[in-house]
């Protein structure tokens, strides 16, 4: 046996370095802060798990976490089915395809903060189009927390459903025609075609859509910040931004990070369970000599 060449390490080194700077070092810094008390004179004092205990005993934290979960749940429950529904109804050929794709991409191109601003104005009961229309029903996002929630959800659905739709569409167009033909011959109903042909063949991209949308919605910040600026902190992100103590903030960040990591992992494992092949299939593809 030949000794394994150690040169491989040199090749991996740039990546390790990059990851160190972008992820490991910042994260470790935060970990370090989370176990210290930073006095006003920039003195660090070791406090152990004090901040963690404080955060975990804070009612505000649990309320915020709960709201986050509810928000993500609602978002996913609306966007995934809606996105799939839109994808199913998008044209498969002709001039409609590019038109549809461009229109669907538009909301995705708008920066987050601008989205917040748009909806802030849109929902205003004095001048906003939606606000004025809904005024008679007692709508007022600035005064009523339920209306604020409603606004946030509408905002997110408007902003991100097209992402789900585009991903689902990509999954749909990759289904060979023979599957639809076979289903017709087998006498399958439209619903069965959806259930047994389209949905399983979209599963991969939908996993990605769910993960992306979950992580994003769980980290929602700019939108509530824009809509509820100055109000009570609602979500973990806004809660975080209003926490003054550095160490506590750090501890909260770590907990926040771990929750997202854990939930993403759970989603991924559940959705790819009993999946014969991994997402990346090597197959026979290779470089053309």
């Amino acid at each position: 046996m030949k000794p394994v060449s150690q040169k491989a390490w040199f090749l991996v080194a740039p990546v390790l370095l990059l990851v160190a700077f972008t992820a490991i070092i910042p994260l470790m810094t935060v970990v370090n802060y989370s176990v210290q008390y930073v006095a006003t004179n920039a003195q660090f004092h070791w406090v152990g798990d004090l901040w963690y205990r404080e955060v975990l005993h804070s009612e505000k934290f649990w309320n915020a976490l709960w709201r986050n979960l509810v928000f993500s749940g609602i978002i996913l429950a609306i966007q995934i089915p809606l996105g799939v529904l839109i994808a199913l109804n998008m044209p498969r050929k002709g001039w409609g395809v590019p038109t549809c794709l461009v229109l669907m991409s538009l909301p995705l191109l708008i920066p987050w903060y601008v989205v917040g601003m748009i909806w802030q104005m849109f929902g205003r009961v004095d001048i906003g189009l939606m606000g004025v229309m809904l005024r008679d029903f007692g709508y007022n996002y600035e005064g009523d927390p339920l209306d604020a929630w409603f606004t946030l959800i509408i905002m997110d659905v408007w902003h991100w459903t097209s992402l789900v739709a585009l991903l689902a569409y990509a999954g749909l167009v990759s289904i060979p025609n023979a599957y639809y033909q076979a289903a017709r011959i087998d006498g399958a109903s439209g619903w069965q075609v959806f259930l047994h042909v389209q949905l399983p063949r979209m599963a991969r991209v939908l996993t990605i859509a769910v993960l992306l949308r979950f992580m994003d919605s769980f980290m929602i910040f700019t939108e509530p910040f824009a809509v509820i600026a100055g109000g009570d902190p609602v979500f973990l992100s806004t809660e975080l931004s209003q926490t003054v103590e550095l160490g506590q903030r750090a501890a909260m960040s770590i907990i926040y990070f771990l929750i997202i990591l854990l939930l993403s992992w759970v989603f991924y494992t559940v959705m790819t369970r009993d999946d014969g092949e991994p997402i990346q299939t090597g197959g026979k593809s290779g470089s053309a000599s």
Partner: peptide
Amino acid sequence: VNVTGVGVAKRNVAMVYQQFINY
């Protein structure tokens, strides 16, 4: 020459696949 572990890019190898692979 021992070419164990020498990547395909450093070798002069041609492959033709079942699928017709052209540019």
